[in-house]
Design a protein around this nucleic acid. Structure first.
Lengths: 122, 122
DNA sequence: CTGCATCCTTGCGGATACTG
DNA sequence: CAGTATCCGCAAGGATGCAG
């Protein structure tokens, strides 16, 4: 599939759009951060994230696996044991994600202030 | 909106979540990029982005205005004229967003390769 | 333990029509 | 020109039950 030749973010084929779609969902970023701290089992992730449904955890992990961000290792034991970890590609995503988080930490107060102002002024 | 207090990463302690939610929707990032190139009128944005509905354009702009990312200036003329531009806060968002886009440009091919591999192997 | 299948609710986002 | 209002389809996401 040839796609990302356009320079504009407006193009749906633009890679930026695809990455935004990739991390835009509710749990992706959280999972990536969790896995950055080390390999985790399915149940560990579910316990740590607390609030995520099995469906969403599995679904998100599958998407990340499909995108080559996360690797999934199944041990043929009983009871089953599955470990998830970041791939090399996945690790490179940590940095840009952190950049965004740093912005968040620094500016969310301003955003919240703006919201209060906006909501209060009408 | 109910928030879960069990895990700090998902909640208030993790402003990243809020920022991700902020840019997670379909048009926010595009609009921010457009406005980074200068002040735009409503109809200019609509024409340039092409594919966005009035509803989504208005809604997204309203959200961004509420968050203090975009400023809205109405000229009391007939016919109406409204200009949108990035606020100082909004401008600071460009950089982390660009970081993410740069990652995309560099790594999307790998992601697409991983996808083909994944989809082909089953 | 690690999932997949299913139902069901919710809300995003598109299309269209109307207003100041 | 710059919106608002309304209807509607679709898919995201939660809850539950079942399987290997």
């Amino acid at each position: 599939m040839v796609s990302h030749q356009e320079n504009s973010v407006c193009d749906a084929n633009c890679p930026s759009r695809q990455v935004l779609d990739l991390i835009a969902n509710k749990w992706t970023a959280i999972i990536i951060y969790r896995l950055d701290k080390g390999t985790k089992r399915y149940s560990e992730l579910q316990r740590e994230i607390g609030g995520i449904s099995q469906k969403m955890l599995t679904q998100t992990l599958r998407n990340l696996e499909r995108d080559g961000i996360v690797s999934r290792k199944v041990y043929p034991v009983i009871p089953p044991m599955v470990e998830y970890s970041l791939t090399a590609l996945g690790t490179t995503l940590i940095e840009p994600l952190s950049t965004l988080c740093r912005w968040a930490e620094n500016h969310i107060p301003e955003v919240e202030a703006a919201r209060s102002r906006y909501d209060g002024d009408r």
